[in-house]
């Protein structure tokens, strides 16, 4: 892909960090507001898509490397399974940390409330793990398919 015009590149430079921060907000507040790991990961991956389209495929690889994203994806899935094994004393996927008073362990007030960040037990940690996996996985798909598109175009011109 060839890079787009200077206007698009300048707007991208201002906007992409805001999109990434908004995606992280959706991931971290997944147990209080609409959203969660999958949705926030998809929002963050859309920032990668914006970078890829506006700068072209080669320049975008300076920002994010494919191997690093692949490592993040594997570590996200491993963290998710490890959090699921954490409650194996009772049963698989048991919410060990909820209402325990420790990490994310405050007792949530029942009914309509403004929301407390420090509740939810294992759920916010699983949100972060799945969000890490989804954002890096979609980033890997975008990078790999963009590189292969360049290759396919060269083959077509022969």
């Amino acid at each position: 892909m060839s890079p787009m015009s200077k206007i698009v590149r300048t707007i991208t430079k201002f906007v992409y960090s805001i999109i990434i921060i908004f995606g992280f907000y959706i991931i971290v507040h997944g147990h209080l507001t609409p959203g969660g790991g999958f949705q926030g990961g998809a929002v963050t991956a859309s920032a990668f898509a914006l970078l890829l389209v506006s700068y072209g495929s080669l320049a975008s690889k300076k920002f994010v490397k494919k191997d690093f994203l692949s490592f993040l994806e594997s570590s996200g899935l491993t963290l998710f399974i490890a959090l699921a094994f954490l409650g194996l004393g009772t049963t698989f996927f048991y919410n060990l940390l909820a209402n325990s008073g420790g990490w994310f362990g405050n007792v949530s007030s029942v009914g309509i409330n403004p929301g407390d960040m420090n509740t939810g037990g294992v759920v916010p940690l699983m949100n972060m793990a799945v969000g890490l996996e989804v954002l890096s996985g979609l980033g890997v798909i975008l990078l790999v398919m963009a590189g292969a598109m360049e290759f396919t175009k060269k083959k077509e011109n022969l």
Partner: peptide, 10 residues
Amino acid sequence: QETGTNNVVT
């Protein structure tokens, strides 16, 4: 009460 999350879907 059981999980402490406000978002029931999550």
